[in-house]
Simulated assay, not measured.
Amino acid sequence: MIYEINTRQKLPINKQEAWEFLSDPKNLQEIMPDDMGFEILSGADRKMYTGQLIQYNVTPLPGFTTKWVTEITHVEKLSYFVDIQLYGPYALWHHKHFIHEIEGGVEVEDLVHYKIPFGALGRLMHPLLVKPKLNKIFKAREAKMVEKFGHFEN
């Protein structure tokens, strides 16, 4: 089964500011929850480009650290980029990042399609462990973006 996450966050910044921050792979570490043990290993030394490979270590669960390799498959400057997991904890991870201009700022949209490994066991673990963890990660990212850029007032 393929699952979906779709989040939207309004920020009081312009498209250029949003793009400059979100398209710099080094900034991902800044908006990840501290308990994820997120560490960039390689590939984040340049601004984002199609074909870029980025390697991280992540700790999705206490005591379980794994490598995650991402490929940036599409980049449309100031509008969107797409990353996919080539290696990591998911059977499938396809993450689209959109930046929409709105009155008074931007709306940042994340659309993720993912699949859990381990068949029936993975499907059982999804509502108990995986989905709550992903929701926590995206909520933490939202809070860190507000901390960095401020609340959207409109």
Rank of each mutant, 00 (worst) to 15 (best):
G122Q: 08
Q55Y: 08
N6P: 00
V112E: 01
V146I: 15
I102H: 10
T50P: 01
F152W: 12
Y87A: 03
L128I: 12
H95K: 05
S79T: 00
R46M: 05
H97F: 07
N27Q: 09
W68L: 07
E147F: 03
M125K: 04
I99T: 05
G122D: 10
F152K: 10
F21C: 07
Y90S: 00
F81H: 11
L11W: 04
K15S: 15
V58I: 14
I102Q: 10
K131V: 08
E153P: 03
K139N: 09
P60K: 08
H126V: 05
L11I: 06
K148Q: 08
F81S: 07
R8D: 15
G150P: 02
G88F: 01
I54T: 13
K131H: 09
Q85C: 01
N135Q: 14
P132R: 10
H100F: 13
I84Q: 09
I5S: 05
H95V: 04
P127E: 04
Q9G: 10
L22R: 02
V82G: 04
I102T: 12
L86G: 09
V58D: 01
V106A: 04
H113Y: 11
W93D: 01
G104T: 01
L28K: 09
W93N: 07
A44Q: 08
S23V: 05
H100K: 08
K139F: 05
M48H: 07
Q16K: 13
W19Q: 04
